[in-house]
Amino acid sequence: MNISAVRAGIATNANAIQGLNCYGYVPDSISEPAFYAAEVDVNYDTSYGSLDELMVTCRVLVGRADDAASQALLDDYLSRGDRSLKAAIEADCTLGGACDDLRVQRVQGYRYYEHQNSKFIGAELVVQVIGTPEE
């Protein structure tokens, strides 16, 4: 698997949510609400050398102008409704051929985040990705 293609594919899928600014990398600055693929953990040879596994930690950040409204928007992104990040990311489980399969495994870290000296309310989504190693 090509890690850059996986990160870009996750952001492309998330971009189906109208009004959400999506990045396949950690951007220098963001326009909120924002979603981006951040840290990547790699487990090589998870199935007797035939598959690699990536655990991609993604962040979704919303503004803090109105704490209640901001948290309600964040909750929408984390729930299974019209703005569901889980549904958007899993809409194409192969990311256009960049991997064999994926699933949004969990949400964690619902809290305040600082990005480029600005504070946001946000959470992390951990996406499990499996695929054939690159030759």
Results as ranks from 00 to 15, higher is better:
residue 2 N to K: 07
residue 2 N to Y: 00
residue 3 I to V: 10
residue 5 A to I: 00
residue 8 A to Q: 10
residue 12 T to I: 11
residue 12 T to K: 14
residue 13 N to W: 02
residue 13 N to T: 02
residue 14 A to E: 00
residue 14 A to T: 01
residue 15 N to L: 02
residue 15 N to D: 12
residue 17 I to L: 11
residue 18 Q to Y: 01
residue 23 Y to W: 11
residue 23 Y to G: 02
residue 25 Y to T: 14
residue 25 Y to C: 03
residue 27 P to I: 06
residue 27 P to K: 07
residue 27 P to F: 07
residue 30 I to T: 08
residue 30 I to K: 08
residue 33 P to M: 03
residue 33 P to R: 05
residue 36 Y to F: 15
residue 41 D to A: 13
residue 41 D to E: 11
residue 42 V to M: 08
residue 44 Y to C: 03
residue 49 G to Q: 10
residue 49 G to N: 10
residue 50 S to T: 15
residue 50 S to R: 13
residue 53 E to K: 13
residue 53 E to C: 06
residue 55 M to K: 11
residue 57 T to V: 09
residue 57 T to E: 05
residue 57 T to M: 08
residue 58 C to N: 12
residue 60 V to E: 06
residue 61 L to A: 14
residue 61 L to K: 11
residue 62 V to P: 11
residue 62 V to Y: 12
residue 63 G to D: 14
residue 63 G to I: 07
residue 64 R to V: 15
residue 66 D to L: 11
residue 69 A to M: 13
residue 69 A to W: 04
residue 70 S to P: 11
residue 71 Q to M: 15
residue 71 Q to N: 15
residue 72 A to M: 12
residue 73 L to D: 09
residue 74 L to P: 09
residue 74 L to Y: 07
residue 75 D to K: 12
residue 75 D to C: 07
residue 75 D to Y: 09
residue 76 D to M: 07
residue 76 D to H: 04
residue 77 Y to M: 03
residue 77 Y to D: 01
residue 77 Y to E: 01
residue 78 L to Y: 01
residue 79 S to R: 03
residue 80 R to I: 04
residue 81 G to D: 02
residue 82 D to K: 08
residue 84 S to A: 06
residue 85 L to C: 10
residue 85 L to S: 07
residue 87 A to T: 09
residue 88 A to R: 01
residue 88 A to G: 01
residue 89 I to Y: 04
residue 90 E to C: 10
residue 91 A to E: 03
residue 93 C to G: 05
residue 94 T to M: 10
residue 95 L to K: 06
residue 96 G to R: 06
residue 96 G to N: 08
residue 97 G to N: 11
residue 100 D to Q: 13
residue 100 D to M: 14
residue 101 D to I: 07
residue 102 L to C: 12
residue 102 L to W: 09
residue 104 V to I: 09
residue 108 Q to K: 15
residue 108 Q to T: 15
residue 110 Y to W: 12
residue 110 Y to Q: 13
residue 111 R to P: 05
residue 111 R to L: 12
residue 114 E to A: 15
residue 114 E to F: 10
residue 114 E to Q: 15
residue 116 Q to E: 11
residue 118 S to G: 04
residue 119 K to N: 13
residue 119 K to A: 12
residue 120 F to G: 12
residue 122 G to N: 08
residue 123 A to W: 09
residue 124 E to T: 13
residue 125 L to R: 06
residue 127 V to A: 04
residue 128 Q to E: 07
residue 128 Q to Y: 03
residue 129 V to N: 04
residue 130 I to Y: 05
residue 132 T to E: 10
residue 133 P to G: 09
residue 133 P to R: 07
residue 133 P to M: 11
residue 134 E to M: 12
residue 134 E to Y: 07
residue 135 E to G: 13
